[in-house]
């Protein structure tokens, strides 16, 4: 069993049944999890910011950083592994997009990330079947490639599945 660990702005996919795809401590970032039932491939991208226009050069070298380039990049990666290029038939799950305690939602990066991710998914006619978004806690996400089970955890809050 091995872990495919994704850092901030990274994406990756695996079809090795013994693998776990994992990303640590999502705050306002959003993990987009794409699962292709046909090829039994699991992919994930750790999106940090909504739009690549703030730094197009960065989007070229690290497309996973941004919602508007990260999902496309993950789909291209999964296409190389035999999946449908537009994600037809994919199962989508989302986690992250947390916020600080602020009733005015001044630093709303988490919400903006969520909306940007959903906008791109809609472009592909994809919608999430499960999501754990918002609130004020960080999340670590693990996906078991063999079962597709998505486990979330947060210090002091334990583990749960979506």
């Amino acid at each position: 069993m091995s872990n495919l660990i994704l850092g901030v702005g990274e994406f990756g996919a695996s079809k090795t049944p013994t693998d776990t795809v994992k990303t640590f401590a999502l705050g306002s970032c959003v993990a987009v999890i794409l699962m292709c039932p046909k090829t039994r491939t699991v992919g994930m991208v750790h999106v940090a910011l909504p739009e690549s226009k703030i730094n197009p050069e960065k989007a070229m070298t690290r497309p996973g950083y941004f919602a508007d380039t990260g999902i496309d990049a993950l789909l291209r990666e999964m296409t190389k592994m035999g999946c449908d290029p537009r994600g037809k038939g994919f199962i989508v799950k989302l986690a992250g997009g947390a916020k600080i305690m602020d009733p005015n939602n001044t630093f709303n990066i988490g919400k903006r990330n969520e909306l940007a991710v959903k906008k791109i998914l809609w472009k592909y006619a994809l919608g999430a079947v499960a999501e754990d978004l918002g609130a004020t806690y960080s999340r670590t996400v693990s996906v078991d490639v063999s079962t597709g089970k998505v486990t979330l955890s947060s210090p002091g809050r334990g583990e749960w599945n979506i």
Partner: peptide, 14 residues
Amino acid sequence: MSGSQASDALQYHL
């Protein structure tokens, strides 16, 4: 907001 692996993460006011 960029990620913290501690129980107090995000448990403060802006």
